[in-house]
């Protein structure tokens, strides 16, 4: 850990980064924090817990206000997949964002059922084996269609419309959210219309969801949202050969507009 703190300090001193988005200890609670060269002493509270916050979502909050700053960000495997999508969608400039890689512990990888619990370059921690587990999808796929429908309707009926799944999602970066469009969703009313509320979000997760599972962790009604989006993610790779979160030029096929190119959301500095 000391070595890791020293590394961040060196990045500050060399001017390679002007801030580091990580986690600090606040009493018993690990909380997100932007460490800066002006307050190097704060690095003493830097911690790497088995707790995940939506780091890339927070990064967007900072980048919207400071689009030209060179920032370091603590990235796990899931965060890196999110950053790859954010680059493709012109929300961040890769040359300004430095990935500070964290390999997740075996415990965290197991509890997340994570297929890639480490980023490309690791600065802290040891790589652990990926967890391949699609038992959740299999359990639902084997249900007869009617039973499957009833299962999802029963799950969706628990929704209290908190928007937590949308709020915590690093991939929910649209300027306007369909789930707040009064022509499509009755806003100001709870519970939401089912299944449309959840299906709209599921459709929008196609080509976007990087399977981090923060939505399900944030759901007060314990709706198995991640299973739903994992299924959508599998459909995207199965039918269209696109795996969201991979690095590179290939973009979400659902944003393809033929000869006119891609319907990529507006750049961050145009907002």
């Amino acid at each position: 850990m000391e070595k890791f703190k020293k590394y961040i300090k060196e990045l500050f001193e060399s001017g390679e980064i002007e801030g580091f988005l990580g986690i600090r200890k606040n009493g018993l609670h690990p909380v997100p924090h932007l460490f800066t060269p002006e307050h190097p002493e704060e690095l003493e509270t830097l911690t790497i817990p088995d707790v995940r916050y939506p780091m890339t979502e927070i990064l967007l909050t900072i980048v919207r206000k400071y689009p030209d700053k060179k920032l370091g960000i603590m990235v796990r495997g899931c965060d890196e997949r999110a950053l790859n999508e954010l680059v493709k969608n012109q929300k961040i400039l890769p040359e300004l964002i430095k990935h500070i890689g964290i390999a997740c512990s075996a415990d965290l990888a197991a509890s997340c059922r994570c297929a890639q619990p480490y980023p490309e370059e690791i600065h802290y921690g040891e790589k652990v084996a990926p967890v391949e587990d699609r038992s959740d999808i299999e359990a639902i796929d084997t249900m007869p269609q009617e039973e499957r429908f009833d299962y999802w309707m029963s799950e969706f009926s628990k929704c209290i419309k908190c928007y937590g799944c949308r709020n915590i999602c690093s991939m929910c970066f649209c300027d306007q959210c369909t789930l707040e469009d009064n022509d499509l969703i009755a806003t100001g009313q709870a519970p939401p219309a089912i299944p449309i509320f959840h299906l709209i979000r599921a459709f929008h997760m196609a080509g976007r969801c990087i399977d981090c599972g923060l939505c399900e962790e944030a759901c007060p009604a314990h709706i198995p949202l991640r299973t739903l989006y994992r299924k959508v993610r599998e459909s995207m790779s199965g039918f269209l050969g696109y795996v969201s979160g991979t690095e590179g030029g290939e973009k979400d096929p659902l944003e393809f507009l033929g000869s006119e190119g891609y319907m990529v959301p507006s750049k961050i500095d145009e907002k």
């Binding site: 909380v31 995940r52 927070i58 709870a190 007060p220």
Partner: peptide
């Protein structure tokens, strides 16, 4: 409370809090 340059800009659920365990309702958010 997410604070940027002294201004409160948002809310995140406290993931390690024993009461809500990283979840919030729409009012909390």
């Amino acid at each position: 409370l997410e604070v940027m340059d002294g201004e409160v800009v948002g809310v995140l659920p406290a993931k390690t809090h024993p009461i809500n365990e990283g979840k919030l309702c729409i009012k909390g958010w």
